[in-house]
Design a protein around this nucleic acid. Structure first.
Lengths: 170, 170
DNA sequence: ATCAAATAGTTTGATATCAAACTATTTGAT
DNA sequence: ATCAAATAGTTTGATATCAAACTATTTGAT
């Protein structure tokens, strides 16, 4: 039950101390990239923790929440196949089978057989799943907004641009 | 201004498309924070992929690599306890037991009993583990440098500063 | 000096992931 | 029309994580 981890510092050691150790041990290397990558990692961890705090009271974890939001943002009544969901959420199809089992058991989604392909399924939100997604996405965006609160609009735009330079690199 | 479409997309959908879906479905919410958080996540995923490409040829995974580097940067012959390692790497101590078993089996680390506390252990790199860490950290930093290649020095500093505003937020 | 509480590390039990094997169905070349 | 190959989703087997229970030892209050 207790989350015995420090929350302010994803990895225990301050980045500067870590770099100093490497400079001492490997003066032939320039450890500067570690600081940038470490900063990405720590921001990611912070955001992940905030996400978890938002969804775990509802008994959801990250992949389950992703399924709900992915379906919700398609619009009322829109469906996706398990493999389509797996691709968007970056899970294996076997993990998706498991996720869907759990969400179905909670009454949040429904497996319908695809009328056009008897191998296939169409996953839809139940009334209850739709309502939960609607409720959670609001607090989710609010939580994200709070975590970004130290950044003004211009800084957010800059941050996005710089991060995309990493993500889009071949 | 926006070069936003790339196929090596961590999650399948371009961020802009995702935001557009939310604006249609939930015009009452401002989904802008999702774009920033999504960008952090995608950069993180990119870096994670690059890391994995560097270490998996050596038969290591992320936590195993972290153990090696954490020990290596302490300096030759310096030791840490399993719980100290677990804290730095943010693994449970039970997961650490497992990691150490595997690394020990590969001959990369050694468990020595703590002379000052018979409950405790001191984990040290073997000669082979030290050499592997030394080899991998070099290619690791090189790989990171390559992934950051699109950013100049000033951009890197800015990126760090902005990310820390997220990570350090209470 | 004693002994309850704290601490270090391991084991156990529940659960998650992935890759590969599998079943059922569809597609496409002939 | 046939049937090998492709595809959709599930099951299986190996392995990882965590929390809680456990064993051995140390700490600290008395």
């Amino acid at each position: 039950m207790s989350q015995g981890k420090k929350s302010s510092n994803p990895a225990g050691v301050p980045l500067d101390a870590l770099l100093a150790q490497w400079r001492r041990e490997r003066p032939d290397l320039d450890p500067a990239p570690m600081a940038v990558c470490g900063a990405v990692w720590r921001a990611y961890e912070r955001l992940r923790q905030g996400l978890l705090a938002n969804i775990s009271p509802a008994g959801l974890d990250r992949p389950g929440f992703d399924v709900l939001l992915t379906l919700r943002r398609q619009g009322k009544g829109r469906a996706l196949s398990p493999s389509g969901l797996a691709k968007e959420i970056m899970l294996s199809t076997s993990a998706m089978t498991n996720r869907l089992d759990r969400l179905e058991k909670k009454g949040l989604i429904e497996r319908r057989s695809d009328p056009g392909d008897r191998r296939g399924l169409r996953i839809v939100l139940t009334e209850e799943g739709f309502a939960l997604a609607d409720r959670l996405v609001a607090s989710h965006v609010a939580a994200q907004e709070a975590m970004l609160g130290a950044l003004d609009e211009e800084e957010r735009a800059t941050l996005r641009r710089l991060l995309e330079k990493i993500a889009d690199r071949p």
